[in-house]
């Protein structure tokens, strides 16, 4: 791209309504910054901490139950203190956030990967195809996603060995959360498809005998995907919560690769003996992360489709 082109692109970008709306929403700016910082710190964890909290060899029981740096007995070496095994809480949170974000993002990708195609096919075909797909979605919606995830997780647990389970735990978790929440994406996509399929540009494509898969891919998909992706942003926050809940219940990720939920569960048992920091900091991180992602999702929804409000 030429320099003039770049400058024009920059000016167009700065002048765009979306940029304007973003720059005039302080909450969204803060949320975006927080999310960005959390992303960078989680996925670049070794850059921000020298501890490897989940390598049992590097732990020293002598360091157990050190309170945060500003409390009596605290040390600057462990800013947020340590847990019962001498694990640095700050480091654990960084690695835990990494697991939570990974599970959250991958499971939403899976949900929209199932939900969008099914929604488009249901909406475009109509008739019995539509009925079958949407009734399955309806039935699934009557069961809370947590229960579905619990069920899928339970089935895999009983059908494979314990050692193998440690390896496939995260994929299973992604699959359970992903499968549990496709219906809402299918619904949004379907209702968009119902509107678009009767528009005349679809008729124009049919006139020149465009094959149906191409109509779906080139005409319908680009026009219905927007609202679905916006809802998916909020879906990431929901998926992180579901993951945390499952891990808190002990059916999520194994303790060898803990997520925020696992950390909260571990710390929970020490809450009443005074070691509040072990559960407090992971919980605070979870709240801030989910809140930020939700704020971004809300802003996207309001900016791109005020009617969804």
């Amino acid at each position: 791209m030429t320099k003039a082109g770049l400058i024009k692109f920059r000016n167009d970008f700065l002048d765009h309504d979306i940029t304007y709306s973003f720059l005039h929403s302080p909450a969204t700016i803060i949320a975006a910054l927080v999310t960005l910082v959390m992303f960078v710190m989680a996925f670049g964890a070794p850059l921000f901490t020298s501890y490897t909290p989940f390598d049992p060899g590097s732990l020293n029981l002598m360091d157990a139950f050190i309170p945060p740096a500003w409390e009596d007995g605290g040390t600057a070496l462990h800013v947020m203190g340590t847990d019962g095994q001498g694990r640095d809480i700050f480091a654990a949170i960084l690695y835990g956030t990494q697991v939570s974000l990974t599970v959250g993002l991958l499971s939403v990708l899976l949900s929209i990967g199932i939900g969008i195609p099914l929604g488009i096919i249901a909406g475009y075909s109509g008739g019995w195809v539509d009925t079958v797909i949407m009734r399955i979605a309806d039935i699934q919606l009557t069961i809370p996603p947590i229960l579905i995830a619990l069920m899928i997780d339970g089935i895999t647990r009983t059908s494979i060995s314990r050692d193998l389970h440690e390896v496939v735990a995260i994929p299973v978790l992604v699959a359970s959360i992903g499968i549990a929440s496709w219906p809402q994406y299918a619904r949004i996509t379907r209702s968009g498809t119902l509107v678009e399929r009767n528009k005349d540009y679809i008729a124009a494509a049919k006139l020149i005998r465009t094959p149906v898969p191409l109509i779906l891919l080139r005409h319908i998909l680009p026009n219905v995907i927007g609202p679905t992706l916006i809802v998916a942003t909020i879906g990431v926050a929901v998926a992180i919560i579901i993951e945390a809940t499952l891990s808190f219940l002990g059916v999520g990720v194994p303790p060898t690769t803990p997520s925020l939920g696992t950390l909260i569960r571990i710390g929970n048992s020490f809450l009443f003996s005074g070691e509040w920091w072990i559960t407090f900091f992971p919980a605070l991180t979870l709240v801030i992360l989910v809140l930020s992602v939700n704020l971004i999702g809300d802003w996207l929804r309001d900016t791109f489709n005020p009617k969804l409000r």
Partner: peptide, 29 residues
């Protein structure tokens, strides 16, 4: 083949496509 001109100038063009792609669609087909 038959071609058609539709009533609504809004719904008859795919809003996500550039005009050159819209016009070229039948040429490609």
């Amino acid at each position: 083949q038959v071609q058609m001109i539709f009533q609504s100038p809004y719904a008859s063009l795919n809003p996500r496509w550039r005009v050159r792609d819209i016009v070229a669609e039948p040429i490609r087909a």
